[in-house]
Design a protein around this nucleic acid. Structure first.
Lengths: 203, 203
DNA sequence: TGATAAAGTATACAGTTGCAGACATAAGGG
DNA sequence: CCCTTATGTCTGCAACTGTATACTTTATCA
């Protein structure tokens, strides 16, 4: 590890991390298009050119941010996947964690805010498919595991959007326990694949 | 009211409508920030200045688009709300309608794409709360009706985002019938409030 | 203590964006 | 018929974007 007790001398690694952190913040708040390179740089206390110098381009920076975010522990840890009450676990973490600032769910926020950008959506899709989607669907059993896994992610994303971004009062001001009570069976149903009482009658 | 059934070369009202329609298309596809005034104008066959001339500014145009979209029929018509199988109805319309261009869900797409813009999110929240949220939650019975209604909207939004914007292959390339099969019981459970087989054991 | 490469900055450029002012065109009334 | 006015366009501007080139500053090592 480098020695950097003083505010900040010249330290490439630390600067890189600072830019990465600033970028994550900015992307989470404004999305890919909304966050400017100069703004990101300012947040890290450097000039815009250093961003390109370290990451090549804004696009590559975005990819690295997503990759780093995906690498950090999320709701879907291997440990959690083994839980027999996975639905409740997901629901509880989703509802609870959402409130904190530096959250594993920041990646979802970034994605939601950046989804309008075609290129950013493409990058994010690969990250999600290689990360969460793959991990989760492989942990599920049943015929439509990929689809069910994708719907788990959809519900997580939608909840985040409505509660965090839109700020729907019914969610934002609700009792977390109530939300968990509603969400848990939903997730559980997706995870199990068989709700016990199918609605439509297949072939 | 003026009498001008034939498509006159110069027709203010028709031009205004054309701009509005083009704007709705553009906003649904690229979001508030992503859609340019020139692009919107071109879609209506006019120049950019006419947009500002008729609507004052891009922001006012956006507000009008949202207002008009909210006024148009959505999934949650009063007729649908009476269905005993509301869950399946919602799922079917969500999965099916998504593909079409001029969809009642266009409003949701606009919201999701524009949610990164603070002002746009604020406008959208009011629209949702005054429109869908209110309508749906009043049609539901049970203790946590507003929350359950909000979660219906969340799932709709998340599905839209993941399938349309992110383009998650598990959803985008899935058999629509399969998606409906999974989604229907989810929505039904939210609508009913009681899944029949509760997962967690409350007090 | 210098030399040298790394770390960071300044300037600039080509491309947008939303929007304003001056100009052109066509419709309708006297 | 011309003249007024609504309807629409052309040009341009100031601010912004991402990023390439050239420059300056600092750390490190002989």
């Amino acid at each position: 590890m480098q020695t950097n007790p003083p505010p900040r001398r010249r330290n490439a690694a630390a600067t890189r991390e600072a830019i990465l952190a600033s970028a994550r913040r900015a992307f989470a708040q404004a999305g890919y298009d909304g966050a400017g390179v100069r703004e990101i740089a300012a947040g890290a206390g450097v000039t815009a050119m250093l961003v390109n110098r370290y990451f090549g381009s804004k696009e590559q920076l975005f990819a690295e941010v997503l990759a780093a975010t995906a690498a950090s522990p999320t709701i879907l840890t291997r440990e959690n996947l083994k839980s027999p009450r996975l639905g409740e676990t997901i629901a509880a973490m989703l509802v609870d964690i959402t409130k904190t600032a530096d959250t594993p769910l920041e990646g979802f926020l970034i994605m939601m805010n950046s989804a309008s950008s075609k290129r950013a959506a493409e990058i994010g899709r690969e990250q999600i498919e290689e990360g969460h989607q793959k991990l989760l669907s492989s942990a599920l059993s049943g015929e439509l595991a990929p689809q069910r896994a994708a719907l788990v992610l959809s519900l997580v994303a939608g909840f985040q959007v409505m509660r965090q971004m839109i700020g729907l009062s019914a969610l934002a001001e609700a009792d977390p326990a109530d939300l968990v009570k509603i969400l848990a069976p939903l997730f559980q149903q997706l995870v199990d694949g068989e709700p016990g009482s199918p609605v439509s009658s297949p072939d």
